[in-house]
Amino acid sequence: MLQNGWDTFEIGTILRPFEGSISDASAILPEDRLYSQSNSFSVSVADWRIEKPLFNKDLCIDCQFCWIYCPDMSIISRDKKMVAVDYDHCKGCGICVQVCPTTPKALLMFPEQKDEEEALLEWPKKEKKEKEN
């Protein structure tokens, strides 16, 4: 797109978030939308991160706090269930980890290059469980 000359884009500097028509964006999930290349959804900010949040499904109570407070629409939640972190759009702010109410937390920050499997193995264990063991 950066190669475009003055005569090749729409007048008035307008941008369209979707290709073609969309009847009701509020009713269509991202995976079912036809995003245009002009939608910032089509872009990644992964390179902003130094640390990334990793998600431990076993500890999650689906309180949705991380979803509510994520400034970057990067907590993927479906039917009130936390599914995953969207690493294309997560900027690594760490709010999700701060607001996670479980002990230990279901989300923790790790260095960007950290292997997920490895991180899950290193995850702090539930105190109660340890006592039972």
Binding site: D7, F9, S21
Partner: peptide, 29 residues
Amino acid sequence: MNDMLDLDHPVTHGVQTEEDWHFEHKARQ
């Protein structure tokens, strides 16, 4: 044309363009 009230075709009006775009848009106008 490019009407905001066409709810089936959302449109963003009044964006910012910097040195990589502004010149082309002004030239088009």
